[in-house]
């Protein structure tokens, strides 16, 4: 390994930390807004480090009291309403988890076939799958709205889960295919010679090898669904709403409830963070998979 001088090592740390702070600061500021009182948010110059934290924003959006004194609404909120966001958070979780599950399951099966099996048009299939993502989503949203109306899928979990899974599928297939392609064909062939059927080889040998890849794909699908705005906006009315859509309702004709919006954003990061934490273990394993392979 190259010997580096002390100054270059220090410089490297400074640049690294600088980059981290650059990305972390907006997140930190957003979090402080979530814990600030209405007036404090607008103080100039902005109070970055010293302010009197309050959980009122959280109490308001979840319609609960955390026991710090503000049980009921203290003043009229912008738009005049009181938001209860816990069910919306739940909607988001259900939709993201299920659509991710569906997308990754189908993508795993499809990409194994694309990676391993010979069939007519196999090579075109991949670009065809990808081409479905080339159209702007808004061009798809309106036709889908009418189709969903006919099928009574508007404003239902099934409808949103399906469209999110569908939107994720091309990317998931492409990603998973690259993970399958990395596994030498000799392993499949060895399984065949050992007497196993194609499905048994897939289930017992190949699938455990792409667990890491599937986890990485799942993270991407989850984040897409978690942050998707357009389709939820067009395909739902009152039955369900996900966090990105409801946070837009904080922007009203009588003002924007910055504190509430920040609180919801902060609360919405938690499930996504937990999900990634759960699959992270497999992610790391996925990265070391290459060294296991002969």
């Amino acid at each position: 390994m190259m010997v580096r001088s002390k100054s270059s090592r220090v410089l490297r740390s400074v640049v690294a930390w600088g980059t981290v702070l650059l990305f972390a600061f907006p997140l930190y500021y957003w979090l402080t807004v979530a814990f600030k009182d209405g007036k404090e948010i607008f103080n100039y110059p902005p109070q970055v480090w010293s302010f009197s934290p309050t959980v009122r924003n959280f109490e308001e959006i979840f319609g609960i009291s955390l026991g710090f004194g503000f049980g009921e609404q203290r003043e009229v909120l912008p738009g005049g309403g009181n938001w209860r966001m816990a069910p919306r958070l739940w909607d988001s979780i259900v939709i993201a988890v299920l659509s991710t599950g569906i997308a990754v399951s189908i993508a795993t099966l499809a990409s194994y076939a694309l990676s391993r099996m010979e069939f007519a048009g196999r090579h075109h299939f991949v670009s065809w799958v990808l081409s479905t993502r080339m159209m702007p989503p808004v061009a798809v949203a309106i036709p889908v709205f009418f189709i969903y109306k006919e099928l009574s899928l508007l404003d239902t979990y099934t409808g949103v889960i399906l469209i999110h899974a569908l939107m994720n599928l091309p990317l998931a297939v492409l990603l998973m295919k690259s993970f399958f392609d990395d596994i030498p064909h000799e392993i499949d062939e060895s399984g065949m010679i050992d007497g196993a059927s194609r499905f048994l080889i897939f289930r017992r040998i190949i699938l455990p090898m792409v667990k890491g890849g599937a986890a990485a794909t799942a993270v991407l699908c989850f984040i897409f669904s978690w942050t998707e705005f357009l389709f939820v906006l067009t395909l739902t009315q009152t039955g369900l709403k996900t966090v990105p859509v409801v946070s837009s309702t904080f922007v009203t004709s009588t003002g924007t409830a910055w504190g509430n919006m920040a609180a919801l954003g902060a609360a919405a990061m938690l499930p996504a963070f937990l999900f990634i934490l759960l699959v992270q273990k497999h992610l790391v394993r996925g990265l070391t998979l290459g060294s296991v392979k002969q």
Binding site: P184, I187, R204, I205, Q294
Partner: peptide, 8 residues
């Protein structure tokens, strides 16, 4: 040649 063992 590459043994094709099942790594998992």
């Amino acid at each position: 040649q590459n043994y094709a063992l099942y790594p998992t």
